[in-house]
Write a protein that binds this DNA or RNA. Sequence first.
DNA 1: CTCAATTAGTTTAAGCCTAAAATATTTTGT
DNA 2: ACAAAATATTTTAGGCTTAAACTAATTGAG
Lengths: 153, 153
Amino acid sequence: MDQEAEHRAQTRVWLRLLACTTLIEGELRRRFRDEFDFTMPRFDVLAQLDREPSGLVLGELPKRLMVSAGNLTPIVDRLVADGYITRTPSNLDRRVQIVCMAIEGRKAFRRMAKSHGAWLAELLADFPADRFDGLIGELDELKGAVREALQKP
Amino acid sequence: MDQEAEHRAQTRVWLRLLACTTLIEGELRRRFRDEFDFTMPRFDVLAQLDREPSGLVLGELPKRLMVSAGNLTPIVDRLVADGYITRTPSNLDRRVQIVCMAIEGRKAFRRMAKSHGAWLAELLADFPADRFDGLIGELDELKGAVREALQKP
DNA sequence: CTCAATTAGTTTAAGCCTAAAATATTTTGT
DNA sequence: ACAAAATATTTTAGGCTTAAACTAATTGAG
């Protein structure tokens, strides 16, 4: 494959990737909004805290969710205000805060996570089930390759 | 594969897809900003107009770019103000406007598109070239399946 | 012909997102 | 001990995004 063709293939991969993600993300966002009056970023925070019964250092969230720290401040603020999570300053280091799922949050999350799984199943229903593993493998490799490339400079 | 396992596979596909897209999109956005003081949505508009020498009906842009119409208004406004594109009302139907690449825009686009291709090549360099076509095929099928599912209700 | 429905596009309100600057606190080097 | 560097988080400025309401122009049914 000459370089021209490789270039085209790379662009096509990127455009397809973007199209698939945009399509699915848009539909999931719409449903979160319509069914639960909730947003995906809020759901993502709850999903992280659901896996950490003892809570998380606030600064861990931007790393795991691959977003900026400043972005998270108002989202966490609102989740706290709504009673879904708690935010408590650490005694050892007064710069640090611990965020933790609250009872309300866990209930809401369980309910939404169930729908989220069902929506995904519905959206992906027409993709042959025996090819999921192959696609997951390719995407894992792609992710690894991109991370690799980002490390280099 | 039982339904539980299929659910997990679907969720994994979605999370991988989102991770890959977020990773690449973030890096491309950063470079557009640093190198050209430009944004991806603005670039995307220019990319569409570059393919249409005689211009496009404004309303065609939101469809092709898969964004809302309201979103495009200020982006097109700014591109017009910067002299990259032109917007002219149609004589036949005064509701309609035609947007068209301007000389400045074409020059800027060519320059940025070249870098865009190189950045993509750099980011995807570690992914084996002989597997691009396979991945493109899978993503095409995935996109088709999701579109299919969205049609149904 | 006339007026209700439709269509193209803009505006508004609310929320997400980033980079960069600012604040507060802790750690480190001397 | 204490000034400087580092760390955790918030704030700010600017841009993107959507849904829904709005304006203006056209179409079409009676």
